[in-house]
């Protein structure tokens, strides 16, 4: 296993890693955004955001609601294409490919960059079919046995296998909220993505279910690059290694999570973290 870019050492505040871009530069960059602007019709929702996201770690986007963090997240697998009148400019690189390039197939992109949504949204199908859906449409399994193996592995990785292994044929909508969200994570994992985007994945869950998802996220960063939008600073502090603070469509500050929470550069970050607004 590669070392995560900024290992969560306790009290590891050091002056060297204080540089905003510096800490991330150490690990290979998985996603790199350069001067991204997003417009909804006339509204300028994202203003010139540039950020590098290191591989196999958790990056949290925080900020007050309406600050554009979800919008920016949705640019990374081009979910914004689905919104009428939404226009994205600038470059977003996944590895070294511009995802907005004409030659890029959005299907392939979304298979590489999976997504977990704010509200658990299992399909009204069985648990098994929910997980098998991605592999099935992408043709990842040639035989029934291969599919079974993918489903089992995905559910195991999502820490759901033990709870559902005896009722794979039951509808996914019958699970509890936390289980549904882990099912959605398993569904995303089943396609073997490289990056997983999570848009406030715990906002609809109770604290216990939230804790389980957070544990799971921590597990998953061994293999996946994870970007999580959260409105909870505590959550960002618990699960992420890097944090990016958005405010009114601007990326105010990025850096390793410890620094951001202990010693932010920007006054706005400071105010937000200390609870002056939000």
């Amino acid at each position: 296993m590669d070392q995560p870019a900024s290992p969560p050492t306790k009290m590891g505040v050091s002056v060297t890693s204080r540089a905003t871009e510096g800490s991330a530069a150490a690990a290979p960059v998985k996603v790199s955004a350069q001067n991204v602007d997003v417009f909804y019709g006339e509204k300028h929702a994202i203003k010139g955001v540039s950020i590098n996201i290191p591989e196999r770690s958790v990056t949290a986007f925080i900020g007050p609601s309406g600050c554009g963090k979800s919008t920016f997240l949705r640019c990374i697998n081009r979910m914004n294409d689905l919104i009428e009148g939404c226009r994205v400019t600038g470059r977003i690189l996944l590895d070294d490919d511009d995802i907005n390039d004409r030659s890029v197939d959005v299907v392939l992109l979304r298979a590489r960059v999976g997504m977990v949504f704010q509200k658990p949204n299992p399909f009204p199908k069985s648990i098994y079919d929910n997980v098998a859906y991605g592999p099935k449409i992408h043709g990842l399994a040639r035989t029934r046995a291969e599919m079974d193996a993918i489903v089992e592995q995905s559910l195991r990785k999502a820490a759901l296998w033990d709870e559902v292994k005896d009722r794979l044929k039951e509808p996914g909508t019958g699970l509890s909220g936390g289980q549904q969200q882990r099912l959605c994570i398993a569904r995303a994992i089943a396609v073997s993505p490289e990056v997983i985007l999570m848009d406030e994945p715990c906002s609809a869950l109770d604290p216990i279910a939230t804790a389980r998802i957070e544990e799971l996220i921590d597990e998953l960063r061994q293999n996946y690059t994870i970007i999580i939008v959260t409105h909870s600073m505590q959550q960002a502090a618990r699960v992420s290694q890097q944090t990016a603070f958005f405010h009114l469509g601007n990326l105010v500050e990025t850096g390793s999570t410890e620094f951001m929470f202990t010693n932010p550069h920007d006054q706005r970050t400071q105010d937000y973290i200390t609870g002056r607004f939000g």
Binding site: V107, L108, A111, R112, H138, G139, L140, V191, S192
Partner: peptide, 8 residues
């Protein structure tokens, strides 16, 4: 999987 997807 990337290969398989690309092929399909």
């Amino acid at each position: 999987s990337a290969d398989l997807i690309a092929r399909s």
